[in-house]
């Protein structure tokens, strides 16, 4: 019995080790590669051999990559701020006020978040051209509303539903208007939820590729995913793997740190939203 128990424990921990290795290894290998240059790249190294920062300096030295980082930061921040602003009031109405068609409205919002983005690409392309914002950050900020807004509304609605009714009733008795209730009563309670949804929406906007690829045409307006996706060498055969890995590490490390810090909140937000960030 104890021998069998020992065996089960060993098998269990072996499984745990496999899961961890499988999850972490690709990123680890990207880091190893990002420190390799020249002929080092063409040998398979399981361990870092040298600490050569030249891939990093070459990526950050090229002006366009740093520019792309700023583009992404600006676009993602503005999108999130806009989405949260609209979502707070809307989710209050959806979570706390009874009106006819509420369930239907919620389903429609969910439907938008599950839209295949390609289905709106032609129409958005026309709109972007019409508004004269092609190849500017505003094209992305506008189009990212399609997935950040439904997501934030959805998650904030589920959070707000769970706030106790008594708080709101007390405020109503004191004669507070809905606007006062939102800004003075609910907003302070909602901060954790806002941080979570904001972070998830930020990650979504930071990672978006289809719209960013289609609505930009010059290297200076590219976002990070497009810059990395289209990073190429002098010829097809010479893919600059070292710099690509360095760029990948640069844009991923901040995300991973954020995700690890906000681990618990993110898991809660993901399961409430059920939507991939």
């Amino acid at each position: 019995m104890t021998a069998q128990k020992l065996l089960t424990t060993i098998a269990f921990y072996a499984l745990v080790v496999v899961i961890v290795l499988f999850s972490v290894f690709p990123f680890y290998y990207a880091i190893v590669t990002s420190f390799a240059t020249g002929t080092e790249l063409f040998k398979v190294n399981y361990w870092p051999r040298s600490l050569d920062w030249s891939n990093y300096t070459s990526v950050l030295g090229g002006r366009n990559f740093v520019r792309s980082i700023w583009n992404s930061v600006f676009i993602a921040t503005t999108t999130v701020a806009f989405a949260l602003f609209l979502a707070v009031t809307a989710s209050y109405a959806l979570a706390r006020v009874r009106f006819r068609g509420r369930g239907l409205l919620l389903m429609m919002i969910l439907a938008v978040s599950m839209f295949p983005q390609i289905a709106v690409l032609a129409g958005l392309f026309e709109l972007v051209r019409f508004l004269g914002i092609f190849n500017t950050p505003w094209a992305m900020i506008m189009s990212y509303v399609i997935f950040t807004l439904p997501f934030t509304v959805w998650v904030l609605t589920t959070f707000m539903r769970d706030l106790p009714v008594e708080i709101e009733e007390a405020a109503i008795v004191d004669g507070a208007t809905p606007w006062i209730i939102i800004t003075k009563v609910f907003l302070p309670l909602l901060w954790p939820a806002l941080v979570t949804t904001g972070l998830l929406a930020f990650i979504g906007a930071w990672n978006e590729f289809l719209f960013a690829l289609t609505f930009t045409s010059s290297e200076t307006t590219r976002t990070v995913p497009v810059a990395i996706g289209l990073l190429s060498g002098a010829s097809q055969q010479e893919i600059p793997w070292g710099p690509i890995m360095a760029a990948s590490v640069i844009v991923t490390v901040p995300l991973i740190i954020l995700v690890l810090i906000f681990q618990r909140k993110i898991v809660a937000g993901l399961t409430a939203g059920g939507v991939k960030g």
């Binding site: 899961i19 961890v20 999850s23 972490v24 690709p26 990123f27 990207a30 990650i203 930071w206 990672n207 590729f209 990070v224 995913p225 497009v226 990395i228 996706g229 990948s248 844009v251 991923t252 995300l255 991973i256 954020l258 995700v259 690890l260 681990q263 993110i266 960030g277």
Partner: peptide, 12 residues
């Protein structure tokens, strides 16, 4: 550890 693959951008 399992959150890491999720946090990495798809393009990366």
């Amino acid at each position: 550890a399992i959150l890491i693959p999720w946090a990495i951008p798809t393009i990366v």
